[in-house]
Amino acid sequence: MLELRGITAGYEPRRPVVRDASLTVAAGESVGLLGPSGCGKSTLARVAALLHRPDAGTVTLDGEPVRGWRHRAPREQRTAFGVVFQQPRMSADPRLRLHDLIAEPLRATGRRAEAPDRVRELAAATGLTADLLTRRPHEVSDGQLQRACLARALVLRPRWLVCDEMTAMLDASTTAALVAVVEDYRRETGAGLLAVGHDPVLLDRWCDRTVRWREVQEVQEAQQVQQVQASQKEALR
């Protein structure tokens, strides 16, 4: 269970881009978060993936309250999430060959030995050929690079996937292919999914349920006034 309660978050003090947002994803569930661009849904996704510390609110991961974000989160918590972002060009270190890009999390966590097998497995799943694996990001297309980014997100076998506009830059066929890879992985491992996007048709087709950004912020208003006040106090602190 991934539970976000009363999240207020932003990048500048006193100018939150997310106010009092709440969202729950049950274990193994896939939830689509639908909203216009610039509404703050990506920020909420980064809070959920422990990549951005909120100004207020709580995140509960599998019953454990989250106490720290980014490097302040224990490694087991951080690596429980696989993340894929909108722009593959920005999400890949330009100097790493695709093989190293996918293997990097295994190397970073001292599991270098597993890398060759795991990369081969994921390359097959995402449709990357041996030739593509030897190239650097600028030598492949957006679609091919996003396949590698998805493989990297899956390499540590995360329990949760956060896909932030994963397919916004891609054509219809690549979109369908990547969604199929995600769903195969979830079927095999029972991982939960938070898919952020702006295309209702896609999210409705992909996810168990789709939540509108409006609803994410309204849930909080419907809850007890006390809790709202508490989180506002916290936000002001």
Binding site: R46, H71, R78, F81, S91, A92, D93, E104, P105, A108
Partner: peptide
């Protein structure tokens, strides 16, 4: 850049992100 976010989720330490 998001690739640093991806490295954080991939378990990289601060030092590894800076050096690599």
């Amino acid at each position: 850049r998001p690739f640093v976010d991806a490295a954080v989720s991939g378990g990289s330490s601060r030092l590894r992100i800076a050096v690599r």
